[in-house]
């Protein structure tokens, strides 16, 4: 080693060198610098518009002139919650979101479980590709494709007809509520497309949570005398729950807010998203539209609160 080497190196030249030294001495300053723009964005653009929206819901439309009356009132909420058609929309949307979420979780679980615990190497890559691929193609294209699949003269019916199983579909479609003239104009059709479109959002967090689940916990459970079913309910399920909750937050809130799928595949009965679109747009009733958008926010808040109470986040 050369004895000429100094123990302390000279400062690096230029302003970037000086800045590096300053940041090293005051790490909080760097953090502040990095966080300010996103916080400003979040605070002003996002929260600001959210509060502006909330504020809107406390105004009401003047029923004589159709103009917005800017005095704070709860009249719009009363209209929202006492008009049967509006309640229908809320109940319909929440039920749909709940069904979509439950069913997504049900079919996402085995897929996620396989991917997290068994798939290795190229199979894992294939899994990610398979799950993500639908996310890469256009949302609208997918929905239109589903419309064609489910149409009365569509692929699905054609296949059933070839299999001589058309009577089965007919019987199903004659059921009240979930049936209809064809799958593409029934709640079932809307449901299927919702599940298809949001499924990746359930699989990925579920898979992440299952991946974090150490194998030796499963071995420990079996070792202590738990049959596979017991292991599932006592270990896998509670530890996968945060992932399922995270996924369900996606599927649930995305279904609550979507207004395109029920527009293209469905019976034209409105969902909350469509109602918002229609009220703020066509009707110019921004207060009611705002009140409608508050509904999913309240539901999601309640949902998160329940999930927290149930201990879904304890293992985080």
């Amino acid at each position: 080693m050369s004895s000429a080497a100094a123990a302390i190196l000279p400062p690096r030249g230029g302003p970037s060198g000086a800045a590096s030294d300053a940041f090293w001495r005051h790490p909080k300053f760097l953090l502040l610098l990095l966080l300010t723009p996103p916080l400003l964005w979040l605070g002003i653009i996002y929260l600001g518009s959210l509060f502006a929206l909330l504020a809107q819901s406390f105004f009401a439309i003047d029923h004589y002139t159709g103009m917005i009356d800017y005095t704070p009132t709860l009249r719009t909420y009363r209209e929202l919650l006492t008009t049967p058609a509006n309640l229908d929309i809320i109940v319909r949307t929440v039920l749909m979101a709940a069904c979509v979420t439950l069913f997504s979780a049900l079919i996402a679980f085995p897929i996620a479980y396989y991917a997290a615990r068994y798939a290795r190497g190229k199979w894992k890559a294939l899994f990610y590709l398979g799950v993500m691929l639908p996310l890469w193609s256009s949302y609208l294209v997918k929905i239109y494709a589903w419309k064609l699949i489910l149409a009365k003269e569509g692929i699905f019916n054609w296949v059933l007809a070839k299999l001589h199983l058309y009577w089965l579909l007919d019987a199903y479609l004659s059921l009240p509520v979930i049936g209809g003239n064809s799958l593409s104009v029934s709640y079932t059709g809307t449901f299927l497309v919702f599940v298809y479109v949001w499924l990746p959002y359930m699989i990925l967090p579920l898979q992440a949570s299952l991946e974090r689940l150490p194998n030796n916990l499963l071995e420990a459970s079996a070792d202590l005398g738990a049959a596979p079913r017991q292991t599932f309910w006592s270990v896998i399920f509670p530890l996968a729950l945060p992932g399922a909750i995270a996924g369900s937050i996606f599927t649930f809130s995305l279904t609550l807010g979507d207004y395109i799928i029920p527009q293209i595949v469905g019976s034209s009965r409105l969902f909350i998203g469509q109602a918002v679109y229609m009220q703020q747009g066509t009707a110019g009733n921004i207060p009611l539209a705002a009140a409608f958008t508050v509904v999913p926010m309240v539901i999601m808040g309640f949902y998160l609160w329940m999930a927290k109470r149930m201990g879904a986040f304890d293992a985080l």
Partner: peptide, 16 residues
Amino acid sequence: PYYRWVSDYIGVIGGR
């Protein structure tokens, strides 16, 4: 007025 057309037509399509 139109705003009632909007909410009532929603109701009609919704089966009300």
